[in-house]
Design a protein around this nucleic acid. Sequence first.
RNA 1: GUGAGUGUAGCUCAGUCGGUUAGAGCAUCAGGUUGUGGUUCUGAGGGUCGUGGGUUCGAUCCCCAUCACUCACCCCA
Length: 385
Amino acid sequence: MINALRGMKDTLSPQSEVYQYIIETCTRIAQNYGFSLIETPILEETALFKRSVGESSDIVGKENVPITDKGGNDVCLRPEGTAGVVRAFIQQKFDKAGGTRRFFYHGPMFRYERPQKGRLRQFHQFGVESFGESDVREDATIILMLKAIFDALGIAYTLEINSLGCPACMPKYRTTLVDFLATREGLCEDCERRKLTNPIRVLDCKNEHCKTLLADAPLIVDHLCFTCKEDFGTLKTILDEFGVAYTINPKLVRGLDYYSKTAFEFVSADIGAQSAIAGGGRYDRLVEFLDGKPTPGIGFAMGIERLMDLVKMPQTSRNGYYIGALCNEALSVVFELVDTKRRESKVLTTYEAKSLKNHLKIADKNEAKFCVCIGEDELANNTIG
RNA sequence: GUGAGUGUAGCUCAGUCGGUUAGAGCAUCAGGUUGUGGUUCUGAGGGUCGUGGGUUCGAUCCCCAUCACUCACCCCA
């Protein structure tokens, strides 16, 4: 027997209905906010992700699914959605055209990781990307949109926000932090490694000993430049005014290198260790990293599988017909009636004459609203029962 | 990549201190009911006890390996 690959799942009813419901809900709301669908290829040049996601994350170096195509190109299955959308944005020359562009997307992403609860090798994201708007109100709008989506889906969450600073303040802070870390002896192995790859992530270490060593570490929120500080303040004010509860998590680091300024994460307490249900932030430098004309951008991605256990589905009611034959002579009449009725409704049937009891059982189990049975009497009278 | 746990019917799980034909509930199918279901009763089908090797008179049970799944670390949605 051949099974699906590790970390890859088949999705079928009733889970597939939940999946569809999430996509439909997200799509409807994103369209209300002025976003339109973009479809980008699942396969991209590996270089695209190396340059955008960066080296500090594992998702390209360790977790990508590398492929060499017949032309000898180094390509891979996309590990995330933003890079492809930005590539398309630049390829369409929207960076040169100017103005704002807003896109949403959904589809499969691939990371070669060890699977666990809420983490798959093929998983699905719904995400949005907004280009050309540097105002922090866009950041707030995106967070409000996510709130609207989670409220519509009936999902409980907490929101964490942070500011990662900009080229004016982040490098300075980073130096301050690295200097601080150099004075601390006895950090865990992981932290020693993170000191080199992504020092800010050291702050988020779960190791108790590290936590005590880092209790008085310098935090980015205290080292923001004037503009970043002001924008972060505006964001907080808007969220307060619109009744969005949040906590400031100065240790929140978005995993990918391209983020700057606003970073946020929606977290669920009900789905295990992999608790981030949506994450995003601003990436004002990414378009120029990928050879485009400098264009501000902001977006988020949500993990659909992580939402599927949390969604409250609307109640469904019985619908459609079940039509069955009580005797072999009625089978052809039933077949014809089923075909006619299917032009307007959902119709289920069986190609086998059964007792009334059996038909009613099947109709009931399939949640049909009406059950029609045709037997000798109905054939004689030209009626239905 | 690292660590721990679990693999028995389609599903959820019992069980065997190593001993004849491995059980239950749910699900499926048939019947009790000659054309009114969902309740109930009766019966039936369905298992290489994950796979391979070892110990033993005898292994589903003990040992080793392997594979798969699960959870956690790392990382991240």
